[in-house]
Amino acid sequence: SHFELRVGTITLHFDNISEELAEELEKLAKNGVHADEIRRWWEEWLK
């Protein structure tokens, strides 16, 4: 499923992401983690 995450002024787009993972990314964003860090985390997870 597709997921969009708003982090400050940036909107990150994720394809084929589980609800659980989407929730984890939302938690990171709410805790003030920068969009670049979240994207890096996601790319690492995909490997």
Rank of each mutant, 00 (worst) to 15 (best):
E44V: 07
L25D: 00
V7Q: 01
E20C: 07
H13D: 02
A35E: 07
W45Q: 10
I38M: 03
A29T: 06
I17D: 01
L5Q: 02
V7K: 00
V7L: 07
H34M: 11
E37R: 06
R40Y: 08
L28V: 04
E43M: 09
S1H: 15
N31T: 13
K30N: 12
L5V: 14
E19Y: 12
K30Y: 08
E26M: 14
A22F: 14
R40W: 10
D15T: 09
E24T: 14
N16G: 07
H2M: 03
R39W: 15
E20W: 08
V7C: 04
H2L: 01
N31E: 12
F3R: 02
E19F: 12
N16W: 07
E24F: 13
G32W: 04
W41C: 06
L46H: 09
S18E: 04
A35M: 05
F3I: 06
D36R: 07
R6Q: 15
L25T: 00
D36M: 06
V7D: 03
K47N: 12
L28A: 07
L28F: 14
A22S: 07
L28E: 01
L28S: 02
V7I: 10
S1C: 13
G8I: 04
H13Y: 12
E37M: 11
K30G: 08
L12D: 00
T11E: 04
I10R: 02
K47F: 06
G8F: 05
H34I: 10
D36P: 06
H13G: 04
E23H: 15
H34W: 08
L12A: 00
N31M: 12
T11A: 03
E20V: 08
L5T: 03
I10M: 03
L46I: 10
L46V: 13
V33S: 12
G8T: 06
K27I: 09
D36H: 11
L46W: 09
L12C: 01
W41S: 07
A35S: 07
L21M: 14
T9L: 13
D15C: 09
E4D: 03
L12R: 00
F3D: 02
L12S: 00
E37T: 10
A35P: 14
E24Q: 13
T9N: 15
G32V: 08
S1W: 04
K47R: 12
A29R: 04
K30E: 11
L21H: 06
K27V: 09
V7P: 00
R40V: 05
W41N: 06
S18T: 14
K27N: 12
D15P: 07
F14N: 00
T9A: 14
E19A: 13
E4K: 01
N16R: 02
A22W: 10
W45Y: 15
F3G: 04
W41K: 13
N16A: 05
L28I: 06
E43Y: 09
L46D: 07
H2A: 04
F3T: 02
V33R: 12
E37G: 11
T11W: 04
S1T: 10
E20L: 06
H34V: 11
N31I: 10
E23F: 12
A29I: 04
H2F: 04
E26N: 11
N16E: 05
E20H: 10
N31Y: 06
H13A: 06
L12P: 00
E20T: 12
I10W: 00
R39P: 02
